[in-house]
């Protein structure tokens, strides 16, 4: 998929995030939006997945360790054809397959997550199984930067590094904001790169909102042999909705009707601009 198509799709994913979170009257838009371009690239370009065969043993796996930003993953899965786009509007409602945090039972969800620090361990287990079976699949897991404060992340990193799991791609959504403030204000996990390097990871830095850079980072990750990879994606929390950008307030709340309209107007305008870009 070319960059323009990716941008258009990422814009759809952003709209899906805002619409579903608004309909649910709850959810985590900030970190979903910061990872929207990465979700889009993973499902439309990077990962070997088939919506018609979501349980394929040979598929690439994805574990959303920062499970609260699942509205972004749901939107990407829906647009990729894993389930109907309309189902996004059932997010967080009783009886829905779209639980507030990822839960098994929805096509495309490879692991139940939500309690921070745990997803990466499951991803390490999947990568280990892949090595045992000489399977070709790769395992991707996305972590929040605040999530790095969980000790379990470093237990998992130690194991992955010690076992040279080069089929594992850890990604950090580095938007620098967590619930109680900036990472530095809360309890700084920086330097993130040096920490992963110390655990025998190849570290790649990339811009989370530049598809050329995202493409370069994943290519470099795939070409890395003998050690696991960590891509640190520098991102903007709330990216794409002006009043949510770099504003920690939008970590975990839904916009009311007025702000919902503002957000959708902005995203629709962006959509039109991207259409025009295509016409040029």
């Amino acid at each position: 998929m070319d960059n323009l198509s990716l941008k258009k799709m990422a814009n759809n994913v952003r709209k899906g995030i805002i619409e579903s979170v608004h309909a649910a009257k709850a959810g985590h838009p900030g970190g979903s939006l910061s990872a929207a371009d990465v979700f889009t690239f993973l499902y439309f370009e990077e990962m070997n997945v088939d919506p018609k065969n979501p349980e394929d043993p040979l598929r690439d796996r994805f574990v959303l360790s920062k499970g609260h930003t699942v509205p972004g993953q749901y939107a990407a899965l829906a647009y990729r054809g894993f389930f109907p786009v309309e189902e996004l509007m059932t997010l967080r409602k009783v009886g829905s397959r779209l639980q507030g945090h990822p839960s098994l039972g929805l096509p495309g969800i490879d692991m139940a997550t939500g309690s921070l620090g745990q997803g990466i361990s499951a991803a390490v287990g999947m990568a280990l199984a892949g090595k045992m079976d000489n399977a070709s699949y790769r395992v991707y897991t996305l972590l929040g930067d605040g999530e790095l404060e969980e000790g379990q992340v470093w237990e998992a990193a130690m194991f992955a590094g010690a076992h040279n799991l080069d089929n594992l791609c850890v990604m950090v959504d580095n938007n620098n904001l967590q619930i109680d403030g900036t990472l530095e204000e809360v309890c700084s996990p920086y330097p993130i790169d040096k920490k992963f390097e110390a655990f025998n990871f190849k570290v790649i830095n990339a811009d989370a909102h530049d598809f050329d850079d995202i493409r370069r980072a994943f290519k470099e990750a795939r070409e890395t042999k003998g050690m696991p990879v960590c891509i640190i994606f520098k991102s903007i929390k709330g990216k794409g909705v002006s009043y949510m950008e770099n504003n920690g307030e939008w970590h975990g709340k839904a916009p009311g009707d007025d702000l919902f309209k503002t957000a959708m107007d902005e995203l629709n305008a962006m959509g039109e601009e991207l259409e025009k870009e295509g016409d040029r």
Binding site: M111, A129, Q152, A156
Partner: peptide, 18 residues
């Protein structure tokens, strides 16, 4: 897993999913 029981449980989860 080394002395890292929490991670061991998560790795076990990933192994079983595979």
């Amino acid at each position: 897993a080394g002395i890292a029981e929490a991670n061991m449980m998560g790795i076990a989860a990933g192994l079983s999913l595979s």
